[in-house]
Amino acid sequence: MGAYMSEKKYTKDHEWVSIENEIATIGISNHAQESLGDIVFIELPSVGNSVKAKDEICVVESVKAASDIYAPIDGEIIEVNNNLENDAAIINQDAENDGWIFKMKISDSNQYSDLMSEDEYKQFLEQ
């Protein structure tokens, strides 16, 4: 069994999560970047921190407002996207790929299964 990329899942806080070999990559959804408007600054989380689902772990600042980013599942922060330090607008350009924010080693994969699929998230946005 080689590495595999899971389907992308979404949280009610408009974050996306994809998992590869128990490493989760997290960012904000394209819908979230559209409603935030021009993103000018991100305070990245600290690598090495252990966090629980729903913990506020970093902040995205747009021209309109500051928005907290939550840990979608329990785990340890193992990497952050340093490119965003110099150019947070990458999130506006490509929120769900190059605009990833941090990676976590996850401790409970069941939490991941509970998140919304892309279709479910689309329905959630329409509500």
């Binding site: 408007g37 021009d38 000018v40 021209v63 309109k64 506006n92």
Partner: peptide, 10 residues
Amino acid sequence: PINYKTGIIN
């Protein structure tokens, strides 16, 4: 409207 299509900075 806070902004139109191209955004506040533009």
